[in-house]
Amino acid sequence: MGPTSNIMRHVYGWLLLTPAAILLIGFTHYPTVATVYESLFSKGSAIRPSRFIGAGNYESMMEDPIFWKVLSNNLWFAIGTIPTSVALAIGMALLVNRALPGRSLLRLAYFTPTILPMIAVANIWLFFYSPDIGLIDRLLGLFGLPGHNWLGDPDTVLPAIIVMTIWKEAGFFMIFYLAALQHLPPELKEAARLEGASRWYYFRRVVFPLLMPTTLFVLINAVLNSFKLVDHLFVLTKGGPDNASNLLLYYIYETAFSYFDTNYAATLTAVLLAILAVLALAQFFLLDKRIHYR
């Protein structure tokens, strides 16, 4: 092969890469870098232009009680939603993987919350949670129990949102588990049955370990979602009352578009990105050791 055609090959390769590279750089890498850059400047105003303050924004963030509040809310939100929705997803997948009459309907029913947009889900649950006229309070009323302002009480608002999120997410994760279960060779179950393994024993020693790759995938998604999913806050609580249901991403939105402090929003965004990166890496390396890809 001559030198010219060799060069042409490189040119050709780069040309093929260019469209993807432009998109990636323009919409992912550049904004990330720009965000970090902006977080190093103070908020500008008509009288005082923005200026470089180094880690100044980060220092004031450390002293921002709302930041700590939304961070701990996020932590509780993750702890509240992830294990339960994953466990429910496995349970539902095991249930509909069996030969039941009407199992396709059941699968569809479990999956429905997933195909609804978060805003629609929030509206449905707004009706459930409404004080006095909502579904939950009416049910309680049937038993003579008093109603409750679920979304208006700082003690119940976060749990209420957690329950709704589980409802939304479990069906989605179930689909992945169902697909994984259908890939398990049926002879494994039969081999275990011939030895007298109980269902629980078979699940614990065979099914669950073989589902680990799916669990890793689902966990990464669940963790990312616990930071990314905030649509429902717009409909249900706007982060209130008193930031009791506020989450990091919603706080970023408020900072940028309600208080117009783009530099502080950039600071919070940089922190969010760092948290997500660390979590993804940690899960990947910790769980990878215990996972059995074929």
Binding site: P185, E195, G196, A197, R205
Partner: peptide, 26 residues
């Protein structure tokens, strides 16, 4: 005991654990 066409080995268990699976159940 039964030997399956596909052998029905548990992919996540090593040879030792595969062989001992039934004995542990029992």
């Amino acid at each position: 005991s039964m030997v399956f066409q596909s052998y029905a080995l548990f992919p996540h268990l090593d040879v030792r654990e595969n062989i001992l699976f039934g004995l542990k159940v029992r």
